[in-house]
Design a protein around this nucleic acid. Structure first.
Lengths: 230, 230
DNA sequence: TCCTGTGAACTCATTCACAGCC
DNA sequence: GGCTGTGAATGAGTTCACAGGA
């Protein structure tokens, strides 16, 4: 441990660092050894200056006039994001979404390993998904304790999500990814991130409607006298 | 109708409006007729003042000193979000994630209907998921044209996501929800929202690591000489 | 010259605090 | 008194523009 980072990294930046890391993996596969902020930014879908600022939170990473070393930057980002250490995750709720996540290649390849799959439905207990056997939710505490899992993923119905969350926290999990459509309340020191799939669609629908029904390019064509609300 | 909305609604607000609408549905089921901003905000996991500001973009919605009518607010939000009109969606990529989404109850109940499910793998073509038959991806254009779908969901591998996106746009889709881990480029006038599952976990892992390894409450205990890299 | 690194400006979003109405 | 609606203040995040080193 040379030294810890004095700078605090904004959460929005952390999310993008993960994206850069993935893009870099693709570049490395393609045999590239160096890349500029402009190119990397284009591939990640962000502004070049923003990318440079993001990287600057980790201290100088590149070479002026040249760009970034692909391998060097990969290493730097991996260290910053903690990808090097692999993480044990438990997933509660083995419906279709839970099964899809447990099987998602994007997790395993980034150091996330599902060491516990739990479900309340006896019909699903015993299924094997992605090399792991589904166990009854009653065993939640012992699975967390036995595997030292630090991340919990909740894909249960909304009604039971809070109680599952409480049990995960009590068992020692301090990071939770919640797919259930409820706001979970947790004690300080526990992080929750929520993914709300139907909200994403709803936002798209709104933007869509706004395009069609809203004021097209310019503002409203008020015909005559002002003020009058027609 | 009376007049268009002069106010523009921030996107962050739109996302929360969708959450409020869901919470209201729960309250209505519970027989509640009125609710205060404080209570609604707590259930949605936001700040009460923020909730009031969000609602204020739609114009006055509540009664001072009393609160909001549950039914009235539901109606207002439904209209604003365009929930009343049902939306036709096509989904490309019927892997586990695609199948989970096609079957997700949260979509159907909010007016999103999957009218086309497409996959490039002949082995999956013909499967029935959630009352819809999987068709070959070659039929993308005809399915979009025939169903007037306005929303496209991409759950393909990253390598083909851009080409699928291009075809969706060419066929007339102007709203896209992308689960593939790539930045899609689209012409102006088309909206893309990206959901990146592995990034979510990565952010959690970062916060987790920051808690454990980072400066606990106060700043760093630098041992000796500064600067020393390695 | 090229491209990185970063202060400063700016835009967007959240929070506060209170006026206004019931 | 209670609670909504909203301008003002604060904060976070993004973009700009340029200084600084290869």
């Amino acid at each position: 441990m040379t030294q810890s980072r004095p700078r605090i990294v904004p959460e929005a930046t952390v999310a993008r660092l993960a994206v850069y890391l993935r893009v870099l993996a693709g570049l490395a596969d393609g045999g590239r050894s160096h890349v500029s902020s402009g190119e990397l930014a284009a591939a990640a879908g962000v502004n070049p200056a923003g990318l440079r600022k993001d990287l600057s939170y980790l201290g100088p990473c590149g070479v002026r006039g040249v760009g970034y070393s692909v391998a060097g930057l990969q290493e730097r980002l991996s260290a910053a994001l903690g990808v090097e250490r692999s993480r044990a995750c438990v997933l509660v709720g083995m419906g279709r979404l839970g099964a899809a996540l447990a099987d998602y290649a994007g997790f395993a390849s980034r150091g996330f390993e599902f060491v516990g799959l739990l479900d309340a439905d006896p019909a699903r207990v015993g299924d094997r998904v992605s090399g792991c056997t589904v166990r009854p939710v009653e065993e939640l505490e012992s699975v967390v304790a036995g595997t030292q899992a630090s991340i919990g993923v909740i894909t249960t119905p909304a009604e039971v999500a809070q109680s599952v969350c409480d049990r995960l926290v009590a068992a020692g999990v301090r990071s939770i990814l919640n797919f259930a459509p409820v706001a979970l309340s947790v004690p300080a020191g526990v992080d929750v991130r929520k993914v709300d799939l139907s909200v994403e669609l709803q936002v798209l629908a709104f933007l869509d409607q706004q395009r069609d029904g809203g004021p097209p390019p310019v503002v409203v064509p008020v015909p005559a006298g002002a003020g009058g609300a027609r």
